[in-house]
C-alpha cells in the first residue's frame, strides 16, 4: 500500500493501445511511489514507456488498469476540468523542445498561466520578472521573443513558466535533449537547485546516464516494465563545473 503523503503514487498501472490481437502494451503493472521532495530520474530506451508514464502522472493520459495518485488524489476519479486544475496548481511541465509560444514575449510566455488562475496581469508580469531572475535570466530579455534567445535561455524560460504557479511537482521530459552538454548541465543544475531549495518533487525523464545522476533515485524502464529502481549517492553537477 502506498503512503498517502507521497507526491506521486503509481499503483499497478498498465496502459494498452489498441485492442485484441493488435493491442500494444506501453506500460505493464508499474508500481512506484515518489515521496515529496524526491528527485527521480526515469531512464530507458526509446519506446520503453517513459513518456507514457510521465503523461499518466500529469493526467494527460489515463491508465487502462491501475491508479495514479497525486498527493493522494486519484486521477481516475477526477473530471477533465479537475485534472486541469490539479496540473495548473500542482504540476510544472518542462519539455525537450521548450515549447515556448513564438508570438509571445518572454515575459508573456512565463506569465500567461497565472491569467488562468485569476491573477491580474500586472501582478502576473511582476511575478514573471521574479521567476525569470530566479532562473538566471536578465531583465532585459523580458520583451524579446523566444526566437531571439539561445536554446539554453529558452529552456530556462520554459522552466520559469513551469515554476510560475509554484507547483509542488516538476515533470521534465528530456529537458536537455535539444541542448549542448554544457548548457544541458546548467539546466540540470538549475532543476537540482530548485529541488534542493524548494523541496520540489522532480521526475526527470532522460536518455542520458549523466542527467540521471542528478536524481536521488533512478528508475529504469524496459518494454513498459520497471527493470531497475535504485538509489544512488548524488554526484550531480560535479563532473563538469559550470563555466569551465
Amino acid at each position: 500500500m502506498m503512503t498517502s503523503t507521497a507526491a506521486v503514487s503509481i499503483e499497478h498501472v498498465t496502459k494498452q493501445y489498441g485492442t485484441g490481437a493488435q493491442a500494444v502494451a506501453a506500460l505493464t503493472d508499474v508500481t512506484m511511489a515518489i515521496p515529496i521532495g524526491e528527485f527521480v530520474s526515469i531512464m530507458g530506451p526509446s519506446g520503453s514507456g517513459k513518456s507514457t508514464l510521465l503523461n499518466m502522472i500529469a493526467g494527460l493520459d489515463t491508465p487502462t488498469e491501475g491508479h495514479v495518485r497525486i498527493r493522494g488524489e486519484d486521477l481516475a476519479v477526477l473530471s477533465d476540468d479537475a485534472r486541469s486544475d490539479l496540473r495548473l496548481h500542482q504540476i510544472g511541465f518542462i519539455f525537450q523542445s521548450f515549447n515556448l509560444f513564438p508570438g509571445f514575449t518572454i515575459e508573456e510566455n512565463v506569465a500567461w498561466p497565472l491569467k488562468f488562475i485569476g491573477i491580474g496581469w500586472r501582478t502576473a508580469r511582476d511575478r514573471a520578472a521574479v521567476v525569470l531572475r530566479q532562473v538566471g535570466l536578465a531583465a532585459a530579455i523580458r520583451t524579446r521573443r523566444p526566437s531571439e534567445l539561445s536554446g539554453g535561455e529558452q529552456q530556462r524560460v520554459a522552466i520559469a513558466r513551469a515554476l510560475i504557479t509554484e507547483p509542488s511537482l516538476l515533470l521534465a521530459d528530456e529537458p536537455t535533449g535539444n541542448l549542448d552538454t554544457r548548457t544541458g548541465q546548467a539546466i540540470l543544475d538549475l532543476i537540482l537547485q530548485l529541488n534542493t531549495e524548494r523541496k520540489l518533487s522532480v521526475i526527470l525523464v532522460t536518455h542520458s546516464t549523466f542527467a540521471a545522476t542528478y536524481g536521488h533515485r533512478t528508475v529504469e524502464l524496459q518494454d513498459g516494465r520497471i527493470v531497475r529502481d535504485v538509489r544512488a549517492p548524488r554526484q550531480a553537477g560535479r563532473l563538469i563545473p559550470i563555466g569551465a
Binding site: D80, D81, S84, D85, R87, F93, F95, P113
Partner: peptide, 14 residues
C-alpha cells in the same frame, strides 16, 4: 501543439 501545452499546463478545455 501550443494549445496542447496550454492544456498540459492545466488550462481547462473550455
Amino acid at each position: 501543439w501550443q494549445l496542447g501545452i496550454m492544456r498540459a499546463t492545466g488550462v481547462r478545455a473550455w
